[in-house]
């Protein structure tokens, strides 16, 4: 499954960069969402894929039964998903606000707003 996942992650990265290269603000946001998903999936894939062995410890035992998927990358990705959502929410509202002020969705035409 690693080779399949490699292609999936590559496709997500390509799609996100392509979207971020667009001039439309909305597409930029979509690119950001794809990028954070791609990065999470990248970490998940390279830390090793394991089927059916969640890092959960049954009652009465000190270790998961029969091996476990590495819990540390999962913890890191979980943090990243939540932070990513925070950034996204902020970016979306910011863009909405910028659009209201400038009345323009084209990044090229927003260059003068910092003057």
């Amino acid at each position: 499954m690693e080779s399949v996942m490699a292609v999936v992650v590559g496709a997500l990265f390509a799609a996100s960069v392509y979207m971020m290269l667009r001039r439309s603000l909305v597409k930029l946001v979509i690119g950001l969402i794809l990028l954070s998903n791609a990065a999470n999936l990248l970490i998940f894939t390279v830390s090793g894929l394991t089927r059916g062995k969640p890092p959960l410890i049954p009652e009465g035992m000190d270790l998961p039964a029969g091996g476990w998927a590495d819990p540390l990358p999962q913890a890191l990705i979980l943090t990243a998903i939540v932070i990513g959502f925070g950034v996204l929410a902020f970016a979306v509202v910011l863009i909405r606000r910028a659009y209201e002020v400038v009345g323009e969705d084209d990044l090229d035409k927003m260059r003068s707003t910092d003057l």
């Binding site: 690693e2 080779s3 490699a6 590559g10 390509a14 392509y18």
Partner: peptide
């Protein structure tokens, strides 16, 4: 042009994942 740039990065990521696989 942008698609080519994007695909080059995607391709690189795929190759790198395959290289560190295992």
């Amino acid at each position: 042009r942008d698609a080519a740039v994007a695909v080059s990065l995607g391709g690189l990521m795929t190759v790198l994942i395959l290289a560190v696989n295992g």
